Simulated scan of single mutants.
Amino acid sequence: MALSTFFAEPFYSLADFDRLFDEAFNARTSAVSPRQQGDNSVSRPMRPRMDLHEDQEKNLVTATFELPGLSKENVQIDVRDNILTVSGESTISSERDEKGYSVRERRYGKFSRSLPIPQGIKPEEIKASMENGVLTVTFPRTTPEQAPKKITIS
């Protein structure tokens, strides 16, 4: 997206503005050409959107990831060194060839999102479910050992 096009069209969203900066930054720092497919589409890294909600009353954190078109078999969730990583791969349909596309905005390829989890959370305390392309991961906000304890003054 050219900068002149961005400012000429009044109905671009903030996501388009973010994409403009991502494309500019990636073009300057990437050693790989942004035109990897050989046509005039620009390759952008796939980064699923995420909502993160903390419920202090229930001591629960809920991370919700948008993964449209993916099934749970295409998604992996790993925990290592108190980092929860959601990764996977979205593939392009092989039934359509590259010719004939005027616009191709759907992203495909490998993706990964990571977020820190509290110290002491056990993997069995992390729950995940996926429905209609939305992955929901829940885990405790703190462990009972980390909860504040009242100390009486004698």
Rank of each mutant, 00 (worst) to 15 (best):
R106Y: 11
N82H: 15
K99C: 10
P123N: 09
S13N: 04
V42N: 04
L135D: 00
V134K: 02
R19E: 09
I92L: 09
L115S: 01
K122M: 11
L14N: 10
S94F: 12
P48R: 01
T29K: 03
G109H: 08
G109Q: 06
T142L: 07
K99L: 09
E98F: 15
V86E: 02
G120Y: 14
S114Q: 07
K110S: 09
V79E: 06
D55S: 08
G38P: 12
Y108P: 05
D78R: 15
P123H: 10
G100T: 14
K149R: 02
L70F: 14
F111D: 01
E9Y: 12
A31S: 09
S33L: 07
L14V: 13
E131G: 02
E54V: 15
G38I: 15
K99Q: 14
K58N: 13
V79Y: 11
M130R: 00
R19W: 05
F21A: 09
I151Q: 03
R113F: 10
F11T: 11
L52C: 11
F111M: 01
E57W: 14
D55E: 07
V137M: 00
E125V: 10
E145I: 02
T143N: 00
E89P: 05
F17R: 04
K72S: 14
L135A: 01
A15D: 12
